[in-house]
Design a protein around this nucleic acid. Structure first.
Lengths: 246, 246
DNA sequence: TAAATAGTGTCTATAAGACATTATCTC
DNA sequence: GAGATAATGTCTTATAGACACTATTTA
């Protein structure tokens, strides 16, 4: 029985069927200057040469059935690190969805597995774009998706992917503590509220937000940090997410 | 400029890089006999010959850059139709996620795009399994995932995929009207409640459930249907989801 | 002291949980 | 009439929205 399987595998020829290419693209998001921003890379080659695109690349696949190459998550982490110098331990990364419309790439059939990553604003200083920095920029998501920016349209179907990522983050913001990965460490309540507002695009009541926040403290998701944040007016108390929280 | 791109595309050799295979698998779910059930197919060939697996197959990719083959959604719809005879117009289908761990298939690197589909129980009679019916069965999800059923373990990483599908459906049950695709048409309030209970695995209070349901009627999501459902005791009023609802 | 913003309190409307009561059918 | 379950009502508690008020800093 088991021998039959071995024999079968030995004779199997994957080359007999045409196969698509598989890529991994990462929507790297942060909040800066009161805007949700996405990391874009200028394409060096055709197709869409010179256009802005998401960082990404082809999945590395081994050549034998033994060595089958890197996992999808590893590929996403690798692309992120190559393009930003940030390791997955510092950054929240999660799979978004697969995008595989025929003709989304004029070269050939490409199915891309899209991921999104959240970079805390206080880590932005550590970002070292791989290659030359002029090729990389943080663009406001609203701008990147603005249909009036016709001359700066994103390459491929990357606008769709960014839209999906934003929708996913907004959804998760209310049901999970991913906000941790979008506020500086430590942070003040008004800062956290501002982050929610810029990501969701909605104004939030100060008092009501504090009340919700108080629940997070009670549940031990978040805790006071020493010191205060100096501002132009009354300084604010600072907090931090407790470990083992995402 | 544009000419450069044409030239580039003409010279591009996708064959130069090793590529994974891309498959599409579908978690077809329904509720029957008070259980959430998944459609499984016995594998005819190695690997995992004779084991139960999700219906699925390889993505059809065209041979030229012009004809790039079918969309992912189309491939999922095709697999569904081949295995059940049901068309996507009768069934709710949505992408779940990509699963692409190295070595999840011993033959070669395979990345699968998993979908889930919901089949209304009153459509089960229409299901005509492609090929011989003995190869297909509706298994209770709890059973398929029971670690004690060691001898009947699902092929590949399909247990992971089924788990993810169930989690997604439970999540969506509360935030969208997908329940429409899991109750017969028309249905009674107790039937709908039972469906929620079997999918989520939680008991729900009758009175409170009715109150929630009343909101759906007010919002026009659902409406009274003529007649009543005869039961062993007091008959229940029947309802139906209004069109353009998913 | 004025301006600014952090932080608190309160009133109301809505929704959720628990559970008791009534209504209508079959046998 | 008994048993079963559909259908309704009620009491309590928790949560969300709107908004007024107090506190503490800088300039």
């Amino acid at each position: 029985m088991k021998d039959h399987e071995k024999e079968f595998l030995a004779q199997y020829r994957p080359e007999d069927f045409p196969r698509p290419s598989v890529a991994v693209d990462v929507v790297v998001l942060t909040v800066q200057d009161g805007k949700l921003r996405v990391l874009l890379v200028a394409r060096k080659e055709h197709p869409f040469k010179g256009k802005w695109a998401l960082p990404g690349g082809f999945l590395r696949v081994g050549k034998s059935s033994r060595d089958q190459g890197e996992d999808l998550d590893a590929a996403a982490a690798r692309e992120l690190e190559e393009e930003t110098g940030l390791s997955p331990s510092q950054v929240f990364v999660e799979q978004l969805a697969a995008f595989g419309r025929a003709n989304r790439d004029p070269r050939m059939r490409v199915v891309t597995i899209a991921y999104f990553a959240l970079v805390r604003p206080d880590l932005l200083a550590l970002v070292r774009p791989g290659g030359d920095a002029s090729r990389v920029k943080w663009t406001a998501v609203d701008e990147a998706l603005d249909p009036k920016n016709d001359h700066e349209r994103l390459a491929f179907d990357h606008a769709d992917i960014v839209r999906a990522a934003r929708a996913r983050v907004i959804e998760r913001l209310e049901t999970s503590p991913i906000a941790k990965n979008l506020v500086p460490e430590p942070f003040t309540i008004p800062e956290l509220r501002a982050t929610f507002e810029t990501v969701s695009g909605k104004k939030l009541d100060r008092g009501n937000f504090r009340r919700k926040f108080a629940q997070l403290v009670e549940r031990g998701v978040v805790e006071r940090a020493p010191g205060k944040r100096a501002t132009a007016s009354k300084p604010a108390a600072v907090y931090r997410f407790r470990d083992a929280t995402r």
